[in-house]
Amino acid sequence: MIKGIHHVSALTKSFSENHHFYSEILGLRLVKNTVNQDNIHMRHLFYGDYIGSPGTLLTFFEVPRIGSSYDERAFFGKITLGIPTDTSSYWEKRLNDFAISFQKDGQTLTLQDPDTMGIILTEIPATNSNPTIHTDIPAEKQLVRIIGADYHVPDPAATSQFFTNLFGLESQNGVLVDRDEMSFAKLHATTSDKKSRTGRGTIDHIAYTLETKEAVDELHDLAVRNDLKIEEFVDREYFKSLYIREPGGLRIEFASAGPGFTIDEPLETMGDRLALPSFLEEKRTEIETYFGGDLS
């Protein structure tokens, strides 16, 4: 049922720093330039491959006055991004050229983005079928997709059972994987009783891919039957979403693969200007006035 990670959503302090890092350094395309549908005064940026494929999407809510985060009882840790086989030396040189600090362990590079979110680049036997074209990174060396994330939770066994019993993930030596092995989740035990504080670089949620909107509906029915606490069940037009908290309190989303980001923008110009779902179009003037322009 689950087909890997759909997207990862985090908090950033600065659009300009965030865009420079993810678009100009890592080579991802800004595929959707929009706002938080639940808070129209907050920018929401989606980066991915050329067409914004599920599994390539890193999204960020911009909060200019955000403070520091404090990781305590439950939090998402580093995310792992796949790079093509035999490209770690290329990425090592590129990070050095941009003065990005990192640690190297074999073919794996560990670094932080400008908001201190942890990122691991590791080689996988894959190619990018939808390479971006705005970057100087050769197509055969571009980021492939999101392949994993670290979960820090008070009871890893409970979190594991949540995913395996209800959502079809499989546990392999303490690591959760989907049946197609498109992504993994490493579970780490925490000991703090304090609540984590959201801040700059915090991952707000991780979303998993379901093939269709109907599959999300079916998962919603499953959640209702099992008396799970449903935070939100909403059609965001670009995809349909179901939000649930796992036992440790981390926010998990299940999102449909389609219809995708071309429903309101031509593929060639996606991300160039402010895009709004139809139900927010009547507020475009208010939103653009708030931000002092059309956010292009």
Rank of each mutant, 00 (worst) to 15 (best):
H6D: 11
D136Q: 12
T132P: 07
K195C: 06
S171E: 13
W91A: 01
N33G: 01
H41R: 15
F61G: 12
G174L: 04
S16E: 11
N130T: 13
L276P: 01
P277D: 02
R236S: 03
R225A: 11
E246T: 15
S183G: 03
L121A: 12
V177H: 05
P259L: 00
S89N: 15
G271C: 00
D294H: 11
T127P: 00
E181Y: 10
T198E: 14
E170C: 07
D272I: 03
L176V: 01
Q172V: 13
L30H: 01
Q107T: 13
R200Q: 14
P259G: 00
G48C: 11
E123W: 01
P247D: 07
H7F: 02
A185N: 04
G260I: 04
H41D: 14
D115F: 09
L228Q: 12
I203E: 10
L250S: 06
M42Y: 03
S129C: 03
F254R: 02
I206F: 05
G27N: 13
H205M: 05
T85K: 15
S53T: 15
N18V: 14
R251T: 11
I133Q: 14
I287W: 02
F162R: 10
I252P: 00
G4P: 00
E268D: 09
N165R: 11
D264P: 07
I25Q: 06
I206S: 02
S171W: 00
S256A: 00
E265T: 13
G118N: 13
Q37F: 15
L242I: 14
S241L: 06
K32N: 02
G271M: 00
R43I: 08
D97Q: 14
K213Y: 06
G258V: 04
Y151N: 09
S278Q: 10
D155P: 01
D97T: 12
D221K: 11
E17M: 04
D264C: 04
L169K: 01
S16G: 00
I252M: 14
N33C: 03
G249T: 13
G260T: 03
T285D: 13
L176H: 01
G258Q: 07
E72K: 15
I203F: 11
Q112D: 13
D150A: 06
R251Q: 10
E181W: 03
L81I: 15
G168T: 06
I119F: 11
E214I: 02
R245G: 06
V63L: 14
P54I: 06
E218C: 03
A257T: 07
E246M: 14
F167P: 02
R43Q: 15
S23Q: 15
Y151F: 15
H134P: 07
E265W: 08
K213A: 12
I252L: 10
D155L: 05
V8M: 08
V8G: 09
G292I: 09
R236A: 02
T122N: 08
L228Y: 07
I137Y: 05
A157I: 09
R273F: 02
D294R: 08
I2L: 15
P54F: 06
F98N: 09
E140V: 08
A149L: 08
L11N: 14
V153M: 05
K194C: 03
R273T: 08
E62A: 06
D155W: 01
F76V: 06
T122K: 15
E211K: 10
P154A: 03
D155C: 07
D227P: 00
E214A: 10
S196D: 08
D115E: 14
V177I: 12
K141Y: 08
G174Q: 01
L166Q: 05
D49V: 05
A185E: 04
D115I: 09
L250C: 05
A157S: 09
